[in-house]
Structure formats: C-alpha cells, structure tokens
Design a protein around this nucleic acid. Structure first.
Lengths: 195, 195
DNA sequence: TCGTTCATGTCACGCTGTGTCATCACCTTA
DNA sequence: TAAGGTGATGACACAGCGTGACATGAACGA
C-alpha cells in the first residue's frame, strides 16, 4: 500500500487539459486542477513552474534537434541538414498524433498567455539549432538565420498540416508538407539578385 | 493649476526603467514604481496592461512595417521588399539611439518573463509582415516564411549592431549590418543543391 | 530498530491584476 | 456664471498566482 496515488504529475496534466477544454485556460484555477487530481495547490507548483507550464512540459524537441545535428555528417550543407532534420522530427515526433497535437494546439491558440509561452518554446528550439550550427563551424550570422529558418519552416508546415481538412489517415504527411515549405523558402531566397 | 502633475504615463515609464536598472525587474514591485511616480498601483494598471508592458509600450514597428509594405511598388519581389523595408526601419527607428536601445535591451535580457514578452512582440511584427505579403498577393507559404525571415534578419542584425564594441559614432550603421545578414541568408540557399 | 529520504500537506503571505465607486479639476453649453 | 458632463485619478476590496517554512509519514537502507 502506497501512501499516495501514483503519477501525481500525470494526473495534474490530465486534469488540467480536461478543465482547459471544458471551461477555458483563463477560467480554470490552479486549485481546481489540484482538486480534480486529488492534490493540493502547493503540490501543483512543485511539479510545474506556473499554470501554463502544465501544457508544455515534456517538450524535448530542442534537445532532440541538438542531438540530430551532432550526429549528422559534417560535410552536409546547412539547407540539406535542415531538410533532413525536419523530416526526421516530422516523422518521429508528430506523424501519427495529429489529433492530440491539434487538441493541445486549440487550447494554446485560445489564450494570449499560452501563445506567448509557445513562442518561448520556439525560441528555445531556435537557440538549440543555432548552437548546433555554430558547433558545426558555421559563421554566427549564418547560424542564426539558418536556425530561425528551421523553426519557421517547421511551424509553417505544422500549421498547414494541422489545417488540412482531410482526416488523419488521408492527410498529407507532415514530412511532405515540410518539403513544400522548404521549396518555397528556397524559391524566396533564390528570387533575390545575388551579388 | 492642474489637479495632477502632467504625463503620468511617462513618469511611470521612467520610474520603472530606473527601478529595473537599480534592482532588477523581478525585484521591483508595481507599488514601488507607482510610488516613485507619485501615483497609485491602480493607476499603473490603467496605463499598462501588466508590469512588463511598461518596457515595451510605444513599439509601433508592426504598424509602421505594414504601412511601408502597402506603399511599396507592387512589382517588387519579396526579398527586395524585405531589404528595402528593413533599411528604412533601421535608419528611421534605430539609427541614432543605440545607447537607449542597448539599455532597454540589457533589462530585457536579464529576465525570463521579459524575454518572453519580447518574443511576443516579434510575433506581432511577423504577423503584420505576413499579412502585408498576403495583401500583395503572395502565396500563403511564401508570405509566412518571408515574414519570419524578415523578423529574423532584423533581430540578428540588431543583435550584431548592439554588440559592436565600437562607440556609437563609429559603429557600423545598422542598415549596413542588415545588408550583411541578408547576403548571408541568400548565400544559405546557394549552398543548397536546387532541384 | 533507527534514522534518512522524499513526496505531499498545511499555513502564511506578498504581489498581480481587476471591479467598483468616489472625487474633483477642466470643459462645455446655455 | 451656473449647471452639468467628462475624464483621469484615488480608495478599497478581492480573487488568484506563486513561494517560503515547517510538518507528516510511508518507504528504504543500515
């Protein structure tokens, strides 16, 4: 017999997502979440730094991306690396869970403070990718722009993938959407007269 | 004889910047700011939606950018438009106030919540530029990526401009730094084999 | 058996941000 | 000049966020 029911953190997360969907993010209070999970407010804040974090916890894409960059062939040019990296991320962490991603996405889009936190996560990913490019010997400016481009392409593709009206089984795979967006980016950069 | 001292908003902003510099953003409370400005806490929140906003208020770059895009020649390709737009913004809103920008920047960099808010401002700019490209008839993917690229280039250039160890008079003009970053972006594609 | 560890509970508290009503200089309008 | 409206500020109350400090008791190791 254990003293406490197991997986307090998971219970808090599930209770939070339920309540955010039932009411809204702004209307649900931390005491409500804690009560539904059978815990106290204080315990909630031991697991999550703030109320928003309960929706974002467990997101390790930056670390994953950094690892991918480290293990990629050193001679790969930046654009090819981006393309390869994004395809792997698309296939391993998003493909197959479009419904879940969309549900969380809907909650995030519904609240200003959550959108803000989402941008922070993007920033963290950009910083990780930037560090990865620097470690590969790219010059600082290229590293910075390439990192931002990576994040931009991923999110534009993600947005289009989630907005695809087709059902999950027949929707265009995220990896393919990523390639489309990359092609558009290349065309954009290519349209500029080079010195 | 007026009932209240004038420019309550400005007094609050100045008091806030002083206190943030003296202590830190996190350590200064809204009542402190209000007291230094000779006002009440309630009045602070009538002028600024939250404590962070006092540092960001008056930032109208998104509106300015949208206006620039509307008045630009319709036949300009996206990259040229970005280049032209950024040069104008660089010269009109940043050049000449490097010291001020740097001071606010230092405060922002020192606090997590402020960095987060800064990203939100970037997001607002990206959204405005994106809408501008859509209004010019660009396809949605190109518009989205071009907007993100615009914001990225501006911020990478800004970062390098602020980090330039030369003093304000002799530092490389922001407009030139923007051109450098744009060139690096274009070169990014050059390294990528085109289909 | 004893002491440590560790997740949780309990309590107190300061700060953030908002709703509501009062105040009173200033500005109309007659 | 008198009456009434306007608009910025003050005063007050309050719910919710997030943290510090200490207590509790099951699990675990020696």
């Amino acid at each position: 017999m254990t003293r406490w029911a197991p997986d307090a953190r998971g219970r808090l997360q599930r209770a939070a997502v339920e309540l955010f969907a039932e009411q809204s993010f702004a209307a649900t209070t931390v005491p409500q979440i804690a009560e539904r999970a059978g815990l106290t407010t204080r315990t909630f804040f031991r697991h999550f730094a703030d109320k928003r974090e309960v929706l974002f916890a467990g997101d390790e894409i930056p670390e994953y991306g950094a690892e991918l960059m480290r293990s990629a062939p050193a001679e790969l040019d930046p654009m090819s690396l981006i393309a390869q990296q994004l395809r792997i991320v698309a296939e391993t962490t998003f493909e197959g869970s479009r419904a879940d991603v969309r549900r969380v996405r809907a909650i995030i889009e519904s609240d200003e403070a959550l959108r803000e936190r989402d941008l922070k996560k993007r920033g963290a990913l950009a910083a990780a990718v930037r560090a990865g490019f620097l470690a590969r010997g790219e010059d600082p400016v290229t590293a910075a722009v390439a990192a931002d481009l990576t994040v931009s392409v991923l999110h534009v593709a993600l947005e289009r993938w989630l907005d695809d009206p087709a059902d999950d089984a027949t929707a265009r795979p995220l990896g393919d959407v990523v390639d489309d967006v990359l092609a558009a980016s290349a065309a954009l950069l290519g349209s500029h007269a080079r010195p």
